[in-house]
Write a protein that binds this DNA or RNA. Structure first.
Lengths: 153, 153
DNA sequence: CTCCTTATTGCAAAAATTTGCAATAATATA
DNA sequence: TATATTATTGCAAATTTTTGCAATAAGGAG
C-alpha cells in the first residue's frame, strides 16, 4: 500500500485513506464492504483504543447496526492485514489504527494509564534478533507493562 | 518470597516450591487451597504453556474436577501475584510458570513456533525507560511477533 | 450493463469467559 | 483443639467470542 497515514480532524484525509484502503483490499482479492467502511470510519473519526463492544455500541448509536460476528471478524481482519493494531490493556482487547509510524505502549498495571513509546528504541534489538537469532521481528505494536511515574511511588 | 525457582523432573523441588508458595500466599492473606495446589502442580509437572481449556482437561483426566470458574480465577490469580506468566500465542491465552530467571518469547506468526529469548536483552531499554520516561517497566514476559528463520524465506 | 465467481454477511447455535452469591473451608487466634 | 473470620469455591446465569452455513452482494470479466 502506498501511504495510508492519516491525521486527526481532517475528513479529506479520511476519504483518501478509505479510497487507498479500498484499492489495497481489492488488489489483495478482498472486498471493501459498507460494514468494513463504517468500522474503519469509526476508528478514523474516533482516535484511540476501542474494544469490540465499544465498536458495536457506536455502530448502534449510528443506527448502522452490524452483526456482532461481523464486527469481530472485521477487527480481526483489519488486524491481520495491518490496518489496525491489537493489544491487551487492562484485561481488555483493544484495537486502534496502526499508524504508518509504528509506536508502542507503556501500560501502567496499576492505573491503566497508556503512554506511547517511539519505535526507534527497538532498532538495535530487532537488528540483534535478526543477526544472532535468525528471527525477523515485526514490532508493530508492543505493549510493555509496568508502573507509571505516579504509581511507582 | 524467598526462592521459588524450580527445576524439571525433580519432585522434591516441586514439594519445596509448593511449600514456599503456601507461605507466600498465607503471608499475603491468601489461602492455598487444594484447587490451587492441583493447578500449580499441573504446571510444575507439565512444563510449557497451557490454555485454560487444557488445564480443565488435564484436571478431569486426573479425576480432580475443578469448576471452570475456579480455574479461570486461579490462573488469573497466580498471574496477578507473579507465579504464572500469561501471553497470547496463536490467538490463544496461555499460561506457564514464571521462572525466577525471566525470559521472553519470540513467536512466529506463520507457524506459531515459540522460541525463548533471554531477559538481558532488555536491560538497556528498562534502564532508559526509567531514566528518561519515569516508567518502571516490568518485563516479566514479553511476546515478540515475527517470522522464524524457516518462515522468513 | 449484465453475469459469474466467491468473499462476506447475518443468523443462530456453540463455546469460552465472566460474574453474583450463598455455602464452604483455610487460617489466625484464643 | 475449638472458634471466628473471611477468602475461596461451586453453581447457575449472564456476557462475550467463535463458528457453520445458506443467502447476499462486491468486483472482475465479457
Amino acid at each position: 500500500m502506498g501511504n495510508l497515514s492519516h491525521h486527526h480532524h481532517h475528513p479529506v484525509d479520511h476519504e483518501q485513506f478509505q479510497a487507498e484502503l479500498k484499492d489495497k483490499l481489492n488488489s489483495l482479492g478482498y472486498r471493501y464492504t459498507p460494514q468494513r467502511q463504517q468500522i474503519v470510519g469509526l476508528f478514523l473519526a474516533d482516535e484511540g483504543h476501542l474494544t469490540p463492544k465499544e465498536v458495536t455500541e457506536r455502530m448502534e448509536s449510528q443506527s448502522a447496526a452490524i452483526d456482532q460476528a461481523t464486527i469481530y471478524r472485521s477487527l480481526e481482519f483489519f488486524h491481520k492485514i495491518g490496518v489496525l493494531s491489537c493489544s491487551q490493556i487492562g484485561g481488555q482487547t483493544v484495537y486502534e489504527i496502526a499508524h504508518s509510524v509504528p509506536h508502542h505502549h507503556l501500560v501502567c498495571t496499576n492505573c491503566d494509564a497508556v503512554m506511547p513509546l517511539d519505535d526507534h528504541h527497538f532498532d538495535e534489538l530487532v537488528e540483534h534478533l535478526w543477526q544472532d537469532h535468525q528471527f525477523k521481528a515485526s514490532l508493530t505494536h508492543l505493549t510493555i507493562s509496568g508502573l507509571c511515574g505516579h504509581c511507582a511511588n
